[in-house]
């Protein structure tokens, strides 16, 4: 930035949303933080102050500070000097916010997209069905109910014999 005087750039929220759509999820870089539904609100104040509200995927996610900094940087890169990044817990993040386009990219990346969470009881002992992201078979087994990141589990497909990661439905 060559000019650092207080923000005179007056951006539309849509421009900021577009910039945030290029911020990758730190742990799954084929999807962005907007694909994941983590960005909940963008407002532009009278003096050009930009406020971005995001919600964490998991409360213990170690990438939260990285995401916060990436959001701030993406907005600053548009020439905005006054940026505030807020976090909210309400409504709680759900994998139902991941759009069809992003689900397809997850599948191509080898991660089974999350099944719809449904309206069922939260406290239940049975897990949702999952499909192999490579061959589409439902003949899969969960090999570990936790995976390399908080949002995923480990599976193996008994049809194509490939192991894969699957998104939890949250």
């Amino acid at each position: 930035m060559e000019d650092s005087t207080p923000s005179t750039v007056n951006l539309q929220p849509s421009t900021i949303w577009a910039a945030l759509a290029s911020v990758p999820d730190p742990e799954i870089p084929v999807v962005s933080i907007t694909d994941m539904g983590m960005v909940r609100d963008v407002t532009v104040g009278d003096a050009g102050r930009v406020t971005v509200t995001f919600t964490p995927t998991f409360s213990g996610c170690p990438a939260l500070h990285v995401i916060r900094e990436s959001i701030e940087q993406a907005v600053r890169d548009l020439g905005v000097t006054d940026v505030e990044v807020r976090s909210t817990l309400t409504p709680p993040w759900t994998t139902d916010w991941i759009g069809d386009d992003a689900r397809e990219r997850l599948r191509q990346y080898g991660i089974a997209p999350p099944a719809p969470t449904g309206e069922g009881q939260l406290i239940q002992l049975d897990a949702e069905p999952t499909r192999c992201p490579r061959c589409g078979s439902l003949n899969v087994r969960m090999t570990a109910s936790f995976g390399p990141t908080l949002c995923k589990r480990m599976y193996v497909c008994d049809t194509c014999r490939e192991p894969f990661e699957g998104f939890k439905s949250v």
């Binding site: 998991f58 213990g60 309400t90 709680p92 939260l122 406290i123 239940q124 109910s145 936790f146």
Partner: peptide, 20 residues
């Protein structure tokens, strides 16, 4: 209430896992 709504979604995976 907000914290509980967030945390309970994570806790259900623990319950499934340890019950099994």
């Amino acid at each position: 209430a907000e914290i509980a709504a967030k945390a309970v979604r994570e806790e259900k995976f623990h319950v499934q896992h340890t019950a099994l």
